[in-house]
Design a protein around this nucleic acid. Structure first.
Lengths: 245, 245
DNA sequence: GCAAATATGATTGTATACAATTAATAGGCA
DNA sequence: TGCCTATTAATTGTATACAATCATATTTGC
């Protein structure tokens, strides 16, 4: 029973792919924008996100910026300190460990469910994803490749059609992006592409067990690609990192 | 290495047991209060949470109430609809399924980690928990027993010392409380006490494997105690359900 | 009498203004 | 000169006010 689910089905977490349970448009827009900016390294970890500054950049008042920052704090991408303000999260080695352990626990299950629920159209979508990933890798755009890699994992979660787990995976992958940004040591990212291809094959055969194991190995491999010993130092200035002036 | 972790360790999700990544005092107070109220059935699922009304009850402005409601929306306890307002979440059968499946996936792992990291002091704390649970059950206070049961699961997560998974478990248990409130059919809750006792025994022996299996069985059992076919209807009035007139 | 359209009321979305806390700077004393 | 203290500036916490949207009730037409 893989029934599609509308946004008013009693879930509260909107439609198919909204990360944040936010009603309006402006707040959500800022949220998504900052989300992207953080995941794409345009905002360095530890950077202060002044409400005034962000508000001015997006042409919004502090009220809405505040809401956006709080939402991001929930996702673990932003840290808010009392009377000090919001900062881009700077996950420590401990958190990095935990995030990948959590992924290693949850995502294999997701992969199995996805394999079992896989439709032809889903398969096509995943193939498209992989192609995009491949071409990004070929053109040397590592940041984009990383982003697409995350999108691949999220797409799998969507196919599995498990909103609760999917939500968790989304959050974990966002945090993973930050973590990889900070602690990635491996030069090549081709292994990811390989792993994803292998997964796709399992999906095509609707082999849930294989998908589960492949995903687990994949995430453990990602984890082992991290250098979890020392932290990188944050810098950069805010205004230029974001769009609009 | 089970090092204790302070609130400024780079996690952002404050100290040891705060559910919400909120800086101030007032917002968090309202959050926790509503959280308790919802979990203890004092606020029926589907009930509208008017910003004005809640604000007046707590003597706070809409600004802070709004933030609290958004935080609760992230936890899945509140649903926010654009231009319509916030409501106590009313999880559907589908969500109920998913929440318990997620728990069945995550909590056994947590239980194993907890068993391996278990200290004598932790064991004592869990025993206290169980005693409280037992006495609440004896005095017929089912709501309190349910609440304490949840607290028991959360305590295990705390002992496992896995902040990321712990956070997830917290959220899932909160939602479970709502779900149980809506769909519980079994008359007796003594089985829970039994299961918890068995878990405690495994913990005392530091038997991670047993703890894992016991926890999984326990959650599957809880799941099977739900009647997932029709929804209950929400009613009640807000003002009297909350403290302060 | 019933249905549709309009007008009214209430509630949320957003912006701005003030208060409180914190960080930084300048000054004084040992 | 070095360190502690007090003042000042900046930023966040909170409240209030206005605008936009939605639900309800009334009115109008058929």
């Amino acid at each position: 029973m893989a029934k599609t689910m509308t946004s008013k089905d009693g879930f509260g977490h909107g439609g198919t792919h909204d990360i944040f349970p936010l009603p309006p448009g402006k707040t959500l827009e800022i949220c998504l924008n900052l989300h992207s900016a953080i995941l794409e390294h345009r905002l360095a970890p530890g950077l202060k996100l002044s409400e005034d500054e962000v508000g001015e950049i997006y042409g919004a008042s502090r009220t809405v910026v505040r809401a956006a920052l709080q939402a991001l704090a929930h996702s673990g991408l932003v840290t808010i300190e009392k009377n000090r303000g919001a900062f881009v999260a700077r996950p420590g080695v401990r958190e990095a460990q935990e995030v990948f352990e959590a992924r290693a626990l949850i995502e294999p299950r997701i992969a199995r469910l996805a394999a079992e629920a896989m439709q032809k159209s889903d398969l096509r979508r995943l193939e498209k994803h992989l192609e995009a990933e491949h071409s990004a890798l070929a053109s040397g755009d590592k940041v984009k490749a990383l982003s697409l890699s995350g999108a691949f994992h999220i797409a799998i979660a969507d196919i599995a059609d498990q909103q609760v787990l999917s939500q968790m995976v989304r959050s974990l992958i966002s945090r993973s992006s930050l973590i990889i940004a900070l602690y990635w040591r491996r030069a090549d990212t081709t292994c990811e592409s390989h792993a994803h291809h292998a997964l796709l094959k399992a999906f095509a055969e609707r082999d849930g067990l294989s998908a589960e194991e492949l995903q687990k190995s994949h995430i453990i491999d990602l984890h082992s690609g991290l250098d979890l010993s020392e932290k990188s130092k944050p810098h950069d200035s805010l205004s230029q990192a974001l769009r609009k002036v």
